[in-house]
Design a binder for these strands. Structure first.
Lengths: 190, 190
DNA sequence: ATCCTTTTTTACCATTTGTTAAATGTGCTT
DNA sequence: AAGCACATTTAACAAATGGTAAAAAAGGAT
């Protein structure tokens, strides 16, 4: 049930079986279906998800009021709205399932218990999520300097598995262009 | 000399004078002039800067080979290339002074000494820099969903002081548009 | 003040992207 | 299989942006 999560952590640090038992005590498992909403914009985010299977998307409303995908998270990635989670403030973004999948749910209360019992876990998870922030920011910055066609080609290189599993509309909003533009770009690439 | 840095930290946590003496022991002060390069792309970043006066810019080469500004950092903000700083790998971005200014320099070696002596300092600085990452990523994401004119208007709202202190070329590259486009947008706004 | 360099503004045209609308395709339900 | 809802593709036109080049403006140095 929780192997994928534990196995992922073990990639970074050897964790004794006793600790694993403690960790699994506080985890929850959840199946999600496409377009299921895991967190609404405006709510305080009190959970951190770990994707075992499928793809999650972080979404927000843009200036014109339409939903835009900020990020896609796939297997072995954490997904939360950290600004909300850390500071107990309403989230500006929401979390949705981009396709059917399975998650590990880390409730904030339970995670804090784990951090008390196993302080190294806090360091580890913080390091992982911080690193993923740095990766995300690097990608988003580079997109701003590219035209739509280049953005799409780089998206295919950077996240080929995502490209196959989420809708064209999702990808277009993620790249900051319209569906029609993306469809046109796809045609030109063929 | 170092008051601005210490005063800033005190906003978050009360720090006894003894600790302040320890901290100041490890700090360095540096004056910079406009366009001075503080870190070249490709180098490993071994320092963290704290801006006392002026504006720094984080730059990177885009697909076409021209320099793009990823971020501007002003008074009371930390500036480093964390991916390089944390992981001892060459930086993809560079750091330059966008105008004359004064900095506190925190060398990695000395910072690690401070973290040993005052563990709460590590938590504090990590929290501050993580929060600023979240803020930056939020802004960059929203820019991707806006057209150039909206981006500029939101830039003026979000960072009015920066707008007055850096060149049009810097702002244009930050917003992912050409100087000419930005100049045209400015005209339309008047 | 003058010259020189750099930045900013303009203008023109090519290209890209957005908008609107319709057509086509795809999968699901009955 | 037929029908329906939804996603994707196309098309035609409008609007925005980029590329190039040149003029104007602003600063600095002498």
């Amino acid at each position: 049930m929780f192997e994928c999560f534990v196995n992922y952590l073990k990639l970074f640090k050897n964790i004794p079986q006793g600790d694993i038992d403690i960790i699994e005590e506080e985890l929850e498992h959840r199946k999600v279906t496409e377009d299921e909403i895991l967190l609404n914009e405006g709510q305080v985010c009190k959970e951190m998800f770990f994707v075992c299977k499928g793809v999650l998307r972080i979404v927000a409303l843009n200036e014109k009021g339409s939903k835009m995908a900020y990020f896609f998270l796939k297997e072995n990635q954490f997904c939360s709205i950290l600004n909300s989670f850390n500071n107990n403030i309403p989230a500006i973004e929401g979390i949705e399932a981009a396709c059917d999948g399975e998650l590990i749910v880390l409730k904030k209360q339970k995670l804090l218990i784990l951090y008390e019992k196993l302080p190294y876990l806090k360091e580890l998870i913080t390091a992982i999520t911080t690193q993923s922030l740095l990766d995300k920011i690097q990608v988003r910055n580079s997109y701003l300097g590219e035209d739509a066609s280049t953005r799409y080609r780089n998206f295919l290189i950077r996240q080929p598995e995502i490209a196959l599993r989420v809708s064209l509309g999702d990808i277009a909003s993620y790249l900051g262009i319209t569906q029609q533009s993306l469809s046109r770009i796809r045609k030109n690439i063929r």
